[in-house]
Amino acid sequence: MSHPLALRPISSWLPTAGRPLIISGPCSAENENQMVQTAQQLAATGRVHLLRAGIWKPRTRPGQFEGAGQIGLEWLQSARQASGLPICTEVATAAHVEACLHAGVDVLWIGARTTVNPFSVQEIADALQGVDIPVLVKNPVNPDLELWIGALERLHKAGLYKLAAIHRGFSSFEKGPLRNAPMWDLPIELKTRVPELQIICDPSHIAGHRELLSFIAQKALDLDMDGLMIESHLCPDLALSDVRQQISPATLARLLEGLEIRTPSPASEQLKDSLSQLRDQIDLLDDDIMQKLAARMKISEKIGQYKKENKVTILQVSRWEEIMHSRLAMAGAMGLSRGFTESFLKLVHQESIEVQNWIMNELAPQAVVMKK
């Protein structure tokens, strides 16, 4: 079911010269010098349209850096003055909204932990009633499309028309190479149901590691998303929060330079037939499969460590027989051929043994590859 919303495109409230919107800045505002220097370096790239920084940081567990608080808004103001970049930050309460409006913050965003709570979203919507300010809404922590759409609708009913969504991935119990599962089909479905909504991707929170940012960013652009939010810090390794996913402004410039922006022509869009749509679905499923395999190998590493500490042999024949029996039965019920399933399981099992061998014998990963 479509959810028509009267929205204004990003280009109407933030000039982007026809390019994807780029939002960047540190995970957290830590001090004035950090904000000003980072902002100046980001502005110097000529590619960043909006400066971001967290002021109030909702941490999963207490005892971690939870943001500088309201004084951080002064640092954002200084950074804007020094760089010329408009500023944005996250709000989670009416008090946050009031402080940001008083400080003249240009754009607000609602975080994943807030989007998941309709009471909190409604509180923010009420605080913004009659205020003409852009608001970006991150997807909820859990994969619930109705919550995401509901948050946008609450803000729209409060008279906000400068709205966009941010796709930052979804939390998962399975820990693979990515911090959050992309579940690309959800933002695609969101776009289908709210066609006028523009969607920005947050590769930093999906990847969780700076080495994977480029891959996620390119994937987002290939899926026709309208911009990127990438965390950048003056000294990433010294950041007080989310160290592994932040990059320097210079690294950001190189990352953006390496991205390919593919603009489909109307003719090519018309030629996109059912076969290409099915191939797109396969691409998304292949991404999921790779993430699941990576998560499985992470568990194999832990098993290898346990076996090493307890002097257990790598190969456990009874366990292997149990896996083959149960997986073949399940595969048969799902319509997969026995031959394919056996071959696949043997390959996965062999790789698992290699990983455990690497752990138990303290080999470098390259040594495992060379041995093959």
Score class of each variant (00 low, 15 high):
P62M: 02
P62Q: 01
P62F: 03
G63N: 10
G63S: 08
G63C: 11
Q64I: 12
Q64K: 14
Q64L: 15
E66G: 13
G67Q: 04
A68W: 01
G69F: 02
G69H: 08
G69P: 08
I71P: 00
I71C: 12
L73D: 01
E74Y: 03
E74V: 05
E74C: 09
W75R: 08
L76S: 07
L76F: 04
Q77A: 14
S78L: 04
S78E: 04
A79G: 01
A79S: 09
A79R: 02
A79L: 04
R80A: 12
R80Q: 12
R80C: 07
Q81P: 04
A82V: 10
A82T: 08
S83Q: 05
G84S: 11
L85E: 04
P86I: 08
P86Q: 10
P86D: 06
I87F: 00
I87R: 07
C88E: 13
C88K: 09
C88M: 15
C88L: 15
C88W: 02
C88Q: 14
T89Q: 06
E90H: 08
E90V: 05
V91M: 00
A92Q: 13
A92W: 06
A92H: 10
A95E: 15
H96K: 04
V97F: 06
E98N: 10
E98W: 08
A99C: 09
C100M: 11
L101Y: 09
L101S: 07
L101T: 00
L101H: 10
H102M: 12
A103M: 07
A103S: 13
A103N: 07
G104N: 08
G104H: 10
G104L: 08
V105Y: 07
V105F: 00
V105M: 05
D106V: 00
D106E: 12
D106A: 10
V107H: 11
V107W: 11
V107F: 12
W109C: 09
W109E: 14
G111M: 08
G111E: 12
G111L: 01
A112I: 10
R113T: 14
R113Q: 15
T114Q: 03
T115G: 06
T115Y: 02
T115L: 06
T115V: 13
V116G: 00
V116S: 12
N117R: 14
P118G: 01
F119W: 13
F119T: 15
F119S: 14
F119P: 10
I124Y: 00
I124D: 00
A125T: 06
A125D: 05
A125H: 04
A125Y: 00
A125R: 00
A125C: 09
D126A: 14
A127S: 10
A127R: 04
A127F: 02
L128K: 04
L128A: 02
Q129C: 12
Q129T: 13
P134V: 00
V135M: 00
L136K: 01
L136Q: 06
L136M: 15
V137E: 01
V137L: 03
N139Q: 06
P140Y: 03
P140S: 03
N142D: 12
N142F: 07
P143D: 11
D144L: 11
D144R: 14
L145W: 08
L145Q: 11
E146Y: 11
E146T: 11
L147N: 10
W148R: 02
W148C: 08
W148A: 03
I149W: 01
I149Q: 02
I149C: 02
A151K: 07
A151L: 04
A151P: 02
A151N: 02
